[in-house]
Design a binder for these strands. Structure first.
Lengths: 162, 162
DNA sequence: TGACTAATTGTTATATTATAACATAATACT
DNA sequence: AGTATTATGTTATAATATAACAATTAGTCA
């Protein structure tokens, strides 16, 4: 018996402010709990990453950040990204060199990404079956899995009908 | 009933010349069959990529290529890489921005990579189960899969015992 | 409080990865 | 041979990311 998958692609017109607020709120709580500092730069960066469900490039982030923070430089952004990555508040999409907000920040997880080549939105899955099969098949080569990058390109439901 | 997986990690002292020759030979045949030109630069590039089972960076390739070809520049390498990628003679490891020889160049396939963080060797799997589960789970989100990037980090059998 | 410590941010420079654009040369086609 | 196509040469630059060191800010505790 499988449980229903986590919300994946969002409707074109969903209440995205709710996504942003929820993400910032969770981040706030997680940082408080871990006693790590959710500084202004880190908040701004996370908020910008969550400005859509599309992955954002580091230098896009920098350009946008500069609107509020005149003296931002690459290290400003990369440090914020490092912090957010380390604390699982965001993920890096390796095949795009881009960053997206994490949907399960309060939970240890292994995720897979569905990348729509039509609208460029990304969905994050946290599918135990995928993880399990990968781990099992790797084990058949005697390989001990530590980390997985699974990025799946294709068309989301909406873009299939266009 | 599953069939035994393709050769994955190679023994420390295998006959690597055989790997190189086999790869170049297959490439030769494939290009002949497709009537595309397997030029000197492309051969040299493929040979350098196959110089080990470790992924190689574009600029490492450039440095090495320059030993034989004094005037090589980045486009020289990237064009060769593009050609080899298009014709499935090599793969790009997205999480490393590096390139490895393809083990199944004569066959349409979807592969997964096992990346050993100990010795940096890479194994290529072409596992129908992994592919199937990914496609099936993506379909549960209504997603139509076109392409997969699966890169698994961990320890190869040898490195687990060190 | 104030001095010490650790973490964060500022700043400049540079490394690394990749592509654009246009010129020249080699090959294939008739 | 003449033309078209593909490949390579060459210069410049875009895009992604990190190193190194200085200055500042926040947290600690005598």
């Amino acid at each position: 018996m499988e449980k229903f998958p986590a919300p994946s692609f969002y409707a074109h017109r969903h209440n995205h402010n709710a996504c942003i607020h929820s993400a910032l709120n969770k981040a706030q709580h997680i940082c408080a709990k871990k006693e790590i500092r959710f500084t202004r730069i880190r908040q701004q960066t996370l908020e910008l990453i969550w400005s859509s469900h599309k992955p954002i490039l580091a230098y896009e982030l920098l350009r946008t950040l500069r609107r509020e923070k005149h003296n931002a430089e690459p290290p400003t952004v990369y440090r914020a990204l490092d912090f957010l990555l380390e604390n699982q508040l965001i993920h890096k999409i390796e095949s795009l060199n881009a960053y997206v907000g994490c949907h399960f920040p309060d939970k240890d997880h292994i995720s897979q990404f569905l990348i729509c080549t039509g609208c460029h939105q990304i969905a994050e899955l946290e599918d135990a079956n995928v993880n399990k099969v990968i781990t099992r098949q790797a084990a058949r080569s005697g390989f001990q899995v530590a980390q997985q990058t699974v990025e799946i390109r294709g068309l989301c439901p909406t873009c299939q009908n266009l």
